[in-house]
Amino acid sequence: MKNKTKTLAIACSAIFLFSSTIGCKDKAEKPAEAEATEVEAEAGPDFQISLAQWSLHKTFFGVETMNWEEFGKTLQESPDDLLKGPDPMEFPKMAADYGINSIELVNTFYFSKANDMEYWAKFKQKCEEAGVTVGLIMCDALGNLGDDDPKKQLEAVEKHYPWVDIAQFLGAHSIRVNAAGPGTPEELAKNAKVGLASLGKYAATKGINVIVENHGGHSSNGAWLSGLMGQINMENVGTLPDFGNFCIERGPDGCVSEYDKYVGIKELMPYAKGVSAKSHEFDENGNEVHSDYLRIMQIVKDSGFKGHVGIEYEGTQLSEDEGIKATKALLEKVFAQL
C-alpha cells in the first residue's frame, strides 16, 4: 500500500494516540474479551475531527462577501487590514468551544506574522490553555511552486520556509501547499515536481510534511495529482484530499469541467496525510447535498488512513457557526456507521 502514514503517526502522537501499557499482573488476571476491549479503547478511534480555520473566514474577515481580486492586493500590501472580526489569536478557544481539540490554521489570517516568533509563542500558549493542538497550516498566496521560471519558483519555495518553521514550533505535522503554475498538465507536473521536492527536502529537516490539496486547475484531476506524488516519491510529500475541490475548469456560471470526486479521492488517499471534509448544504436528514460522506469515508477507511478529518464549511444557507455544527454532527454519524 502506498499510504504513507508513518511520519503522520509520529508527528501527531501527542494528538490522538494513547498509552497502551497494561501492568503484567492486571493483564494476566483479565479475561481475553475484556483485555481486547480495553486495548481497543486505549488505541482510540480511527478518525478524529479537526477544524479548518477557513470555516470561519467570514467571521475573521468580518464580511459576508469578499472581492477576491481586492483581497489578494490587500493581502500583499497590508494584510492586517483584512481582519475586521475577532482576533485570529482566539481561534484555539473558538475550536474548543465546539468540542474540537485539533485545528488547521490558514496562513492568510496571519500573513504579517510569518517571521514573528514572539506572536507564535503567545499563540502556542493559547493552544495549551484551550487544550487544542495544531495539526497543519494551510499556505496560500506565497507564489507558484510549479512556476516555469526557476527564479520565481525558488522564491515561492523559500516563502514557504517560515511556515514550515512555524509548523514545527507549534507541533503540527504538515503544511498544506498548492501545486500551481502555468502550462499543460505535463509541463506543470515537471515544474511542480521540482518545486515540491525542493520544499519537501527543507521540510524534512524540520520533521514536517508537505501536503498538496486538490485545489483547482490540474491539481483537481486526481490521476494527475496522484501521478505527481508517484514521481516525487518522498516520504514527507503527500496529499490532502478535499471532498469538494474537484473542479478543473471554471466558467462565468460556475464549474464547466469537474472530476469525479469519488474516483479522485480514491486516487489521492494512498498519499494522504490528512483529509478535508468540505461542506456547503445539508438536507433535512443532515446529509451533505453535494457529497456522500458515508461513501467518501468508506474510501478513506479502505485506504488504511487513520487520523484527523478536518471540517471545512463554505456554505451560504447556514451561518458559519451552524455549518460547522452540522458538519461535525454528520461526521460523527458517519464515523459511527463505519
Rank of each mutant, 00 (worst) to 15 (best):
K4R: 11
T7S: 03
A14M: 10
F18N: 15
A28E: 15
E35V: 00
E40R: 06
E42I: 00
E42G: 06
P45G: 09
Q48C: 07
K58A: 13
K58M: 12
E69R: 14
E70M: 06
F71A: 02
S78A: 13
P86S: 06
P88C: 14
M89F: 15
K93W: 07
N101P: 10
Y110V: 02
K122Y: 08
T133S: 15
G135Y: 12
L142C: 15
D148G: 01
Q153C: 06
Y161C: 04
P162W: 12
W163A: 03
A167W: 08
H173L: 03
G181D: 07
T184C: 12
L188I: 01
L188P: 11
A192E: 08
L199W: 02
A203C: 11
A203M: 08
A204G: 13
S220M: 04
N221P: 10
W224K: 11
V237K: 00
G244F: 02
E258A: 01
E258F: 02
I265M: 12
S279G: 05
E284G: 14
N287R: 11
Y293D: 05
M297C: 12
M297F: 15
F305Q: 03
Q317G: 12
I324G: 11
A326Y: 10
L331D: 08
K333H: 12
L338F: 11
